[in-house]
């Protein structure tokens, strides 16, 4: 590669094409792997999904076990997660992008936020175990799980909020200031409404991430054998990915089919949520021309 000038044009062109072929190969491999993953899950799991599977509690017998407790649990946990992560994430994003002065303190905030986005999810689980479960006495409940996941996905909402606020040109704000709008009025009536698309994308991605997250909830102490539905946020719980983890860790093949079926549902949820987010992002990018 180092002495291009001594190589003939034909060799250099050939190298260029060879790299293109290599990159297309990598691309194909990644997409084939994704297809294999979806195909394998679907062929093992789809036959297992029926009405009874969705409306039964777990059981010692693979053929009688169902997902009822898991999907209701997931729904409860996600509601708590969203109630925490969405308002706080948007508020923090607005502060960092619109208000925060450039000084040491906000620099600390930035570093903390960047670090939070990269802390392994299981470490969030350990914090929740020590802090929420024992110190605050919240127990191994829906509330603990929702708070844990809420903190975990908070950086996703913050980053999405900041990016869509940053995309709004300065003259929109100046126009509002010029007619006497205060800072908050400007944000409330102009900046936020115009960035709804981007923020919504971030919120959807965050929810999808929280739906699929397993490790922190194992740490917090989610149960795998629950034969009742949660009625309040203080009840014990299980969620879809935990149920799938439990089934896939069993040696019996019958349970593996159950795991595949749970996986199909999980994939369906997360991939369709991400699909919606992609469409939203694409549309808001296409439609708005400043």
């Amino acid at each position: 590669m180092s002495f291009e000038s001594t190589l003939t044009v034909r060799v250099r062109r050939w190298r260029d094409r060879a790299f293109l072929a290599l990159s297309l190969l990598c691309l194909a491999l990644s997409l084939v792997a994704l297809a294999a993953l979806v195909g394998d899950l679907a062929s093992n799991g789809l036959p297992r999904i029926d009405r009874a599977f969705l409306t039964s509690f777990p059981s010692r017998f693979a053929s009688e076990a169902g997902l009822l407790a898991a999907w209701v649990g997931s729904l409860f946990v996600i509601l708590v997660t969203a109630a925490l992560a969405i308002p706080i994430g948007i508020a923090a994003g607005v502060y960092l992008e619109e208000y925060a002065p450039k000084n040491l303190w906000t620099n600390c905030l930035e570093v903390a936020m960047a670090n939070l986005a990269g802390v392994p999810s299981i470490v969030f689980g350990l914090m929740a175990l020590g802090l929420f479960v024992y110190r605050f006495g919240l127990g191994q409940s829906v509330l603990t799980a929702g708070l844990t996941l809420g903190l975990l996905v908070l950086p996703i909402v913050v980053v999405a909020t900041r990016e869509s606020l940053r995309a709004i040109p300065g003259y929109i704000r100046e126009a509002s200031f010029a007619v006497g709008g205060s800072k908050w009025q400007t944000i409330r009536h102009h900046v936020l409404p115009y960035s709804t698309g981007g923020i919504l994308t971030g919120v959807i991605v965050a929810v999808s991430r929280a739906l699929g997250e397993t490790a922190p909830l194992v740490t917090v102490g989610a149960l795998t054998f629950i034969t009742f539905l949660p009625t309040s946020v203080m009840d014990p719980f299980t969620v879809l990915p935990i149920q799938m983890f439990n089934w896939v860790s069993r040696p019996q093949e019958d349970f593996h089919a159950n795991a595949a079926a749970a996986g199909v549902l999980l994939l369906l949820l997360t991939l369709s949520l991400n699909g919606v987010a992609l469409c939203l992002r694409y549309r808001s990018r296409k439609r708005v021309h400043w």
């Binding site: 990644s30 792997a33 994704l34 294999a36 993953l37 394998d40 899950l41 093992n44 991605v205 999808s208 739906l211 699929g212 997250e213 397993t214 490790a215 990915p241 799938m244 983890f245 896939v248 593996h256 795991a259 595949a260 996986g263 999980l266 994939l267 997360t270 991939l271 949520l273 991400n274 699909g275 992609l278």
Partner: peptide, 18 residues
């Protein structure tokens, strides 16, 4: 990006059983 949207527990299933 869809690859990164797949839950990790599903990747675990894929690794073990495929």
């Amino acid at each position: 990006e869809l690859l990164s949207a797949v839950p990790t527990v599903v990747y675990g299933y894929f690794a073990l059983l495929f």
